[in-house]
Every structure is written in C-alpha cells, then in structure tokens.
C-alpha cells in the first residue's frame, strides 16, 4: 500500500478547476518529484493534499485513511508536513522559535528533533537566536524545511525548495532532501529545476494542464525523449 495516494483529483480555487484528474502514489521510501510547465497545477496539487483548497472530485488517501479536504491542523498530527514555496518562515520569530512552531502539535520533549535539525543544518544552530527574517535565502529555506521536520512527519511535501536559491544552495538542499528520505521520510516535491530534481527522484510525475502526462521513475522520465523534448528543455545531453 502506498503512503499517499491521490486518485483522480479535481480541485480549484472556487472557479473553474485547475486540476482535472491527477493521480499520484508514492511510498514512504520514495522521493516523488512533480514537474511540468508553469500553470500545470503542480503547486495546486500539494495545496489540494494539504486542505488549502477544495477538492471537488476524487480522493486522497494517506496511510489508509481518507484525508480528502481535511483541515491542515488535522493533517500534521497524522504525519504530513508541508513547506510552502513562499512565506515559509515566521520572519519576526527567532530560528529556534520557528522550529518550535513546527513542533506545535507535539506535547512530548522535542529537544532530540531540534538537535537533529541543527545537525542537519549547522548554520541554523549558530543563528538560533536570530530572527528568521534576517537570514539569507538559503538559510531561510533550511529554517522552513527544519520547521516541517519538527513534527516528525512520515511524508514531507516541498513546494519548489530550490526556487530563488544560488546553484551552490540548490545542490546542498537536494542533498539534504535525499538524507531526509534516507532517514525514513517520504518526500513529495514540486520542482522547476526539473532535470536536477528528477535525478534524485524515485518516482516522477509530469503534469500538464492539470492532468498527468507521464509517470515513471526519475531515470525513466529523464531518458524518455518525448519528456526531454517537451518538458526538460531539449534533448538529453549526451
């Protein structure tokens, strides 16, 4: 059984639907990457999972439980976590407080999680008393991912984690994501940086106009000449 399964999702912001039947299924061991052109409904898919817009048809099943249109503050305790693309930190709160907010639903001692986040992102430990809004773009992204990990999720959803980052940080963030996945957290992420992201993906989904166009492992999609031509900007480099 998959960790999360989206079955023919139709969803939108109230007007005409943006998603016209999206299917996605990944396991806890997977890194699932959703790619596609602008306006394909990639971010919308993640928001639909997290209850941020209304799903009008289809269903979302997480670990055997139906979570279609569930409120987001119910999803976090179930083991889902979400990093929005923008505004994904609490700017006037300190780094440590940001992480604490990620652990809001936990009533147990979360100092262990805090330590492992600091271990994963050493710069954050140095700046843990600083306001998150004063950090650089890459460090903010670390805060955002760290915050999402504090609830000990089984599925981490990331909306364009590499957006706006310098190439050095892109690589670093992707490395961290692989490490998080190795520690047993399923990953479902949306990326513009399609070629790089698919290289770390175990499952890849190409969306276009709110529908699945191609599905396969990351490698399969990278090797598929049609995917390369239409969605990865030209032929596969030799």
């Amino acid at each position: 059984m998959s960790l999360i399964e989206l079955r023919s999702i139709v969803a939108g912001y109230g007007g005409a639907p943006i998603l016209h039947g999206v299917d996605i299924a990944i396991d806890q061991s997977d890194i699932g990457v959703v790619v596609g052109p602008n306006g394909a409904g990639k971010s919308t898919t993640l928001k639909a999972v997290f209850g941020l817009l209304t799903v009008t048809a289809g269903s979302i099943v997480f670990d055997g439980a139906d979570i279609t249109n569930a409120r987001s503050d119910r999803l976090v305790p179930m083991g889902l976590s979400y990093v929005p693309q923008e505004k994904n930190i609490f700017p006037t709160m300190s780094v440590e407080e940001n992480l604490e907010m990620g652990a809001f639903i936990r009533r147990d001692d979360f100092s262990g999680s805090l330590a492992s986040v600091y271990e994963m992102f050493p710069p954050l430990k140095e700046k843990r008393r600083q306001k998150a809004g004063e950090l650089s773009g890459g460090q903010r992204q670390m805060v955002a991912i760290g915050r999402a990990l504090m609830s000990r999720p089984r599925l981490l959803m990331l909306d364009e984690p590499s957006a706006g980052l310098s190439p050095r940080y892109v690589l670093e963030i992707f490395e961290r994501i692989v490490a998080i996945n190795k520690s047993g957290v399923g990953i479902l992420m949306v990326e513009q940086n399609a070629r790089q992201a698919l290289q770390i993906a175990s499952r890849g989904f190409v969306l276009a106009a709110g529908q699945n166009r191609f599905t396969g492992t990351g490698r399969e999609l990278l090797d598929d000449p049609e995917v390369a031509k239409s969605f990865l900007g030209g032929a596969v480099p030799a």
Partner: peptide
C-alpha cells in the same frame, strides 16, 4: 508563541498544525 506565529504568517501557522 503560536499567537506570534499566526500574527507573523497565518497561512504557515495553519500548515504547521496550529
């Protein structure tokens, strides 16, 4: 702290489970 979080970024507070 949750109040400050909501004031800072209500959307993010919501997806953090607050």
């Amino acid at each position: 702290k949750a109040m400050r979080a909501v004031s800072d970024n209500a959307d993010l507070a919501q997806v953090s489970g607050i």
